[in-house]
């Protein structure tokens, strides 16, 4: 594992453990399986949806008027809105993020894909995604945006999704796994996926509850 790489089988095992922990914490991660056409092979990936109420200075959907009342029946529309955090009041300034963690056979690491839509269903444009994520990013205004989050074809659904470029993942993970080994002797990190998510998730607005680490070290 000190190569910073992960096999698909390890990915699925880690993902299952992560969902067990998430269920205990009510964090909303689920493991989905997709079978493409009628072939025998299934692909597993992790999904989580959150709503973020964006602040005044953050990008606002220019198509929707600002001071409209509560949208009606929003909870009937989509169960994911139950996970909404923030002020608790849903407004037109709510952005729904849907995160997918997918195994990449070419990089042999997990890759983060996500989509972000305004309440109207319109996709949040890439430039606004960068603006929204800039507080979490070292690449802010550095001209490096194109190296971090860009649009890509979703490897399973073929639809456009945003994605965090995975080219540094294995190096970063190798460093962490090695450092961990030095500190804790022969005790390997139990869940590669969880460690990876704590490092890369926040760069695209996906924070990991500290409780995961408490559970993980206990089990």
């Amino acid at each position: 594992m000190a190569t910073g790489l992960l096999t698909y089988e390890e990915f699925v095992r880690n993902a299952r453990d992560l969902v067990v922990m998430s269920d205990r914490l009510g964090d909303g991660w689920e493991l989905r399986h997709v079978r493409q056409t009628d072939g025998p092979e299934e692909t597993a990936f992790l999904v989580k949806r959150i709503c973020v109420a964006i602040a005044e200075e953050s990008p606002v959907d220019p198509e929707t008027p600002r001071d409209v009342g509560e949208p009606e029946n929003i909870e009937d529309e989509d169960p994911a809105t139950l996970h909404c955090r923030g002020t608790g009041k849903l407004s037109e300034k709510t952005v729904q993020f849907e995160y997918h963690v997918i195994y990449s056979p070419s990089y042999q690491v997990p890759v983060l894909f996500f989509t972000a839509t305004f309440h109207s269903g319109r996709l949040v444009p890439l430039k606004e995604i960068w603006k929204f994520l800039s507080p979490f990013h070292v690449t802010r205004d550095s001209g490096m945006e194109w190296e971090s989050v860009t649009q890509q074809e979703h490897p399973i659904f073929g639809r456009p999704f945003y994605h965090l470029h995975p080219c540094h993942t294995s190096n970063v993970m190798a460093t962490i796994l090695t450092a961990n080994k030095h500190e804790r002797g022969d005790r390997d990190i139990k869940n590669y996926l969880l460690s990876w998510l704590t490092i890369f998730g926040p760069t695209i607005g996906l924070n990991v509850l500290i409780d995961y680490l408490k559970i993980d070290s206990k089990t």
Partner: peptide, 18 residues
Amino acid sequence: DILLHCESKEAVEAHFKS
């Protein structure tokens, strides 16, 4: 929902670089 946006040369470049 089908096509990647292609609003600038950078978008195209970034895609092929990746």
